[in-house]
Design a protein around this nucleic acid. Structure first.
Lengths: 168, 168
DNA sequence: CTGAATTTTCAAAATATATTGAAAGATTTG
DNA sequence: CAAATCTTTCAATATATTTTGAAAATTCAG
């Protein structure tokens, strides 16, 4: 398979995957194209290769930067801004999960805490069913939090390991 | 807080959370209402409490059943079908992840395997950038697979543990 | 087998989300 | 500082997804 063809396939699939997980297709594709680029790309490069508008490209690049998985690169003597994606895929995964946890899981947890004590007799079947379910979700969320932390720790180790290799 | 109020809050939040993760709001809400119900509900109960149409209720109930997290309950002497959600939230989580892995991650992996050997000189910077990224994603996917398996194993243990408690 | 009760389907309508493009805002250069 | 270049914003538009509701299909009791 030719490189250009393989890249297209990758960008396509990454876009589909993203859209199924609540990340819009363009954003996933912008990320994909930066992931497989051998050098930083400008907004125009991205617009041209993905056939998207300037506004679209710009917004999605900003969001990726906010997520901490893409960074701006200044090329001396060029007025354009260039962008490159973090190629450490493990770090990318943990960053994305962390962002989404913060924006989506944590609000849910807040609600769970608010609703977990309801008025009335604890022996009432309705109340029992409700509190048991809510409590078990809270417990699961706690485990998920632990797992996240574990992964971030593992990432630090991975990073440290790479660093050690460089020094040897 | 009153039980009815707490339930409403829960259904609402569960719906929002679902929609952010690529599960449509109605489906998440149908799941939520069944999760906190103390007894099986009919399609009419669900329609009424969520203010959704019969078609919508029906489709989403079917999908939840296909995911293996809701089951049909027959109440003798009643022609209506009733439904109840699996209350073991850990099992629910692993089922959902497994379904999504199968439908969404596995196709991505298939593409990654197809595109991971490209024609041309391996020392070429473009080709190197591409294959390294693709390979690292494949490696991450491998880890994710392992983690999934681990969780399913843990689920079996949990289940076994609950069973043991019952016997004591 | 009949007909009432219930479930399923799916085209049309409603809603929600993403994209465009041009104007406004910044930034840099000479 | 004026002009050129580049970036950002956002209302309008386009696209995608979800929901409805009524008709068709199925199920079941008598």
């Amino acid at each position: 398979m030719k490189l250009s063809e393989a890249k297209q396939q990758f960008i396509q699939s990454w876009g589909v995957l993203g859209s199924q997980w609540g990340i819009n297709r363009s954003m996933a594709q912008v990320h994909a194209i930066l992931l497989v680029a051998s050098k930083p790309l400008s907004t125009d490069d991205i617009m041209e290769q993905l056939n998207i508008s300037r506004g679209n490209a710009n917004m999605n690049i900003r969001d990726l930067i906010d997520w901490g998985i893409v960074e701006k690169v200044i090329i001396p003597g060029d007025r354009k801004e260039y962008f490159s994606a973090d190629k450490d895929i493990w770090r990318v995964a943990t960053r994305i999960m962390y962002q989404r946890k913060k924006k989506e899981l944590d609000p849910m947890l807040k609600v769970l805490n608010q609703i977990s004590d309801v008025e009335g007799d604890k022996r009432n079947a309705d109340i029992k069913a409700f509190t048991e379910t809510v409590d078990s979700i809270k417990r699961l969320a706690g485990h998920a939090d632990k797992a996240m932390e574990m992964m971030i720790k593992a990432e630090e180790n991975w990073f440290l390991n790479s660093f050690m290799k460089l020094l040897k």
